[in-house]
Each structure stands twice: as structure tokens, then as C-alpha cells.
Design a binder for these strands. Sequence first.
RNA 1: CGGGGCGUAGCGCAGCCUGGUUAGCGCGCUUGACUCGGGUUCAAGAGGUCGGCCGUUCAAAUCGGCUCGCCCCGACCA
Length: 463
Amino acid sequence: MGHCFCSSGKSTSLFPGRNNKNDWTGRSRGRAFTNAYKGNGGEKTLRMSSLFAPTLKENPQEAEIVSHSFMLRAGMIRQLSSGIYAFLPLGLRTISKITKIIKEEMDRAGGQELLLPALHPGELWKETGRWEVYGPELIRLKDRKDRDFCLGPTHEEVITDLARREIRSYRQLPLLLYQIQTKFRDEIRPRFGVMRAREFIMKDLYSFDRDFEGLEISYQKMYNAYCRIFDRCDLSYEVVPAESGVIGGAVSHEFLVLADSGEEKLLICPTCNFSTTQDEERCPHCGTDLEEKRGIEVGHIFQLGTKYSEPMKAYFVDRDGEEKPLIMGCYGIGIGRTMAAAIEAYHDDKGIQWPLSIAPYEVAIIPINWKNAKQREVAEEIYQESQEKGFEVVVDDREFSAGYKFSEADLIGFPLQVIVGEKMSQEGKIEVKVRKNDQRWEAKKEELFTLLFKLKEELASKA
RNA sequence: CGGGGCGUAGCGCAGCCUGGUUAGCGCGCUUGACUCGGGUUCAAGAGGUCGGCCGUUCAAAUCGGCUCGCCCCGACCA
């Protein structure tokens, strides 16, 4: 199908000479929006007839866990090769939502965003010894002059190189620099879609302090920021002291979203808030038997100390005139993984139940029968008004059966669905469905937005 | 890398064991009609180097060898 039946007849278009197809974005309509969209989430509104979201009715054979399956089925991602994925428009919107939350919290904590290269000279990695240590997971290549390069799996070397060139004095500290960027790791076994990919989007922040007291403070700031981020994504998580692996350093914590499909095993004390990834039977604090759960590692923070600054000679001059190595920390969040974790946490057999804060769109308007003039008209009006009131909204303007539209809306997981059907024609009532609990509400058109604001607020405040 | 599985139309699968005309089915897609509150119904149609290469054979999707790709279990990680 895919016809664009626009609101013909009532010519509100600014372009009377052209046909009404020009009103498809809602923006070109020329109405002044009171709520200009701030952020990087793309257009606020969309007609489903033009949405590129190739949905699948059946479960793709390669998908073993729900998040992978639903991301494919909802048309959010497509695989290019093992562990390498394209994010399609809907998927990218959620990625952008998560990214936006992360940026806001990094900025709030005093971070400054930058963008480092993904292509790294091999020499830098040889300086720290990780050219050897990282092993085959490091994707290596050579330039035309046969010089060694690699695709960055993480950025300690590159940021430390920048720091040693530019940081001279304690007066420049503390410094928190972060980026959101694609990382490359030739994983032994890519798995579960974007959960463990070879190319993936990560937020990585690096802290530079003059001493370990400063590092403690930076570390605590990040710890708190991470809590805020995962809270805002509506995820329930555990923070667990962890091994620091190849990244190195002394102190480290993992942020795990609880999910049965998680790759990480963790033990939680049901009485106090102790949790660990180590094998223990009883809580060392209160002696209670620990419960075994599984989690998805979505974030990891490390106190690096001088692990990189020392070998790379990243020194600054302290207040006392002495040259000292920068004290560093690094802090990562897997963005695609966070998205997958949210789906693992919020879904039913029909599809995704996005938390409002990271849903690709907040509201789907579903006229049962697009050929019904009355329904179409009302849907258009609601669509228009939704835009003006600042909702991120799609309207399903396709001539598909009601069942098809409902199924697809549930699969994609729009948190709120506004259904315009027979009740509209008969009693003037519009139905609103809350995706996550299947609650149904009814409202006359005049009261619809009061209801929508109320429901949106409830969904937003629900942590 | 060790172990297991898979590769046939866009997706999900059958056919292979026991080789034999034109390679099937469901969904999706195109066209027309029907229907319009939970992936609606009917009709017509388009769409395939059977992952690739080599071999066996009169004959290969089917048998053998090699190879490539993908998925799952283990060690690694955001």
C-alpha cells in the first residue's frame, strides 16, 4: 500500500498551488511550534506510510534471545555480517534517546564532549604494550606505507596522548572528557545481536586528576551519573565490584541490568544491598544466603591510576613544582547493549514495551479504518494537535487491517496508542491504550490531551 | 580456537536418507475485488546461479571432497 492520503479538502497548506502531499512532515505546514524540538532525536513526527521499518511476522532463525528477535522483527536493526549491525530509523531513534540522556548526565557531572579518531596509529598501542596484550581482538591494518594501524576498541592510548600534549599544569585539572563513538573489537564470538557486537557504539569518558583523592571524586561523580542514566532509562540494575580485565587498574564497578538472558552471573543478598560476581555462598555482611541472578553488563567504570599516564609519560606540573603522572579513570557505557537490555527487561510475547524515555516515538495514532473519512479526519486532527503539544508521534495512515496495525504497534512498542475507531463515530470516544500494562482509557476528543498528558506523566515518573 | 547446528524466493520452512521431466509450501510483494477492533478473504501474477568451487554419474538441491558464510555452547568484554 503506502499511499499518502493527506487531508485533502481542507486546504491549510501554505502552498495552495501544489497538492496537499506537501504537508507530510507537519513542519512544512508553516505552523509555529511552541515546543521546538531540542535534541538530536530527529523529526518528532512521522506518517507510518513513509516509515522505513521493515517488520517481520516470523522469528528470524538467527535470533535466539528476545531483544535480538524483537529488534529485527520491529525493523530496528539489520545484520551486515557477524557482530556488525545497521541501525534503521526506529532503532537509531532509541539509540539517540539513550545517547541524549547520557550526554545530559555526563555534562551535568562536568564532562566535556569531544570526538577522537577511530583509526589509531600502532605506535601508540606499542607504547603501552597493548599492541601485544590485546591480541587478535584488536583489528589491525596497514596503510599504504605499510605502517601499523588499528581500529580503536577503546581509547585510553589516544586520550592519554592528547592529555600528555595538552595538559601541563594542575590548574587544568580535574578534567573529564568523553565521546560517543563506534568501537571495534574482533570478538571471539559475537553473540545475541547488538548485545556482543564487533562494531558497537560506546560512550567512554576519561577522567584526569592530580591525585588519588581527586580520582575518588571523579569516580564518585561518574558512579552517580551512571545511576542517574540507568534510572532515567527506567532500568533496574545492580552495581557490582568487578575485575578490571584488559583495561586495567585497581578499583572497578560493573553496572548490570538484571535479565535472565544476561551473560553475567551475579549473586545478590536479599536483605542488605550487597552484590558480587565472585563465587560466594553467604553475604559477607549479614550472612544471608545469596541469590543467583543473571545480568547484562551495560556499564563499567575503572580507576586506572597511572596505568597509562606512566608508560606514556603523561605528566603535569603540580602546585609544588613537581612533575607527576596524571591520575586517570575511565568509564564506559554500551549504548546498543543498553537498548537490548531494555528490551530484555520490558517486553511481552507481542513485542517491546519501551520505557517512555527511550521509546522511538511516544504515541502512535491508529485509525482502525483509514478509508473511513470521519476516522481519518479525527486522526489527522489528533496528529496535528499532538505535534503542537510536543508529543513524539506517528500516525498509522496505512490501509492495513486493524489487526495488522495493532500487532505492529505492539511489536514496535509505542508506549501510548491512540485508537480511533467505531466508538469515535458512534459515541465520539477515542481510546488510549497503555502498551506496558494494556490498560485502556476512553476520552472525548476535547479531553484527549488531558488524558495523554496524564498518562505520559505517569509513565515518565515510573522508575 | 574446541564442540554442535544451519545455508533452497524478501522472511519462515519442506524436498536430500533412497540422484531422474517444469524445485514445492506458508507469509510477504504486485494487480483487482472483498473486508474494516487483533497480522481479514478471494482471484490472478511476479520472484530461485538450491552459499561457492571441484569431483562422481548418462543425470546432482540430493552422493563425495574442499571452501565461504551464519547461529548456538565454552574462554573474552561495554
